[in-house]
């Protein structure tokens, strides 16, 4: 899909600028774009590295397990099929907790492990209710500190980069609530 989107953006931009006589702008845009891209990477790289380092300390310090213990009762309700399965419960809650703390590097392997454990009881190529619920939890952004956005805001001259955080929490919670409710409603289908 990205092949078509990326190619489409470039081809259509060239055609449009040709039709409207703005070819010079496209030539400049290519050079500006490449420069902007590196500036964007340079602007975010330092803080992303620092945050990854801090989160590694947090993870090893047991923060993920702690969060996982706090959320365990909720997860047992969301995944009734696996409420008795300790391995699945722990992989699921570790994955969600890692996501919550913004530990992308740690979250994905834990999530894949949870999917593998859940698929052991499944003999078809169709997702189970619990799998759907788990993937929906992962497609909803449940990050406590929106680091990337905050860094980019501060680099773009924002006077209050973290000022969006309460809104982000509200919106994530609303999105998550809709996702979970719909998933539960569709389960019997």
């Amino acid at each position: 899909m990205m092949n078509y989107i990326w190619a489409g953006i470039i081809l259509l931009s060239v055609i449009y600028s040709f039709l409207t006589g703005g070819c010079a702008a496209i030539t400049n845009a290519v050079m500006d774009g490449a420069k902007n891209a590196l500036a964007l990477i340079a602007a975010t790289a330092g803080m992303m590295c620092f945050w990854s380092g801090i989160m590694k300390i947090a993870h090893e310090g047991g923060i993920t397990e702690m969060a996982a213990r706090v959320f365990a009762p909720i997860f047992r309700r969301l995944f009734p099929d696996y409420a008795q399965d300790k391995d699945v419960c722990s992989a699921v809650s570790m994955n969600i907790s890692a996501n919550l703390l913004g530990l992308g590097n740690a979250a994905t392997p834990l999530g894949l492990e949870a999917m593998r454990l859940m698929s052991r009881r499944l003999n078809s190529d169709s997702a189970s209710n619990s799998m759907v619920m788990f993937v929906i939890l992962n497609t909803a952004s449940i990050q406590l500190v929106p680091t990337t956005v905050a860094v980019l805001r501060s680099e773009s001259g924002s006077s209050d980069p973290m000022g969006i955080i309460v809104n982000v929490w509200l919106c994530s919670a609303a999105a998550l609530a809709v996702g979970i409710t719909l998933a539960k409603l569709f389960e019997s289908r």
Partner: peptide, 22 residues
């Protein structure tokens, strides 16, 4: 990534629910 890792092709109500959340 998640469904691909366990070879599941029928994702049932995942996409509509996830997009409604987005």
């Amino acid at each position: 990534v998640y469904y691909g890792s366990v070879g599941i092709s029928k994702t049932r109500h995942t996409v509509p629910c996830a997009l409604a959340a987005d």
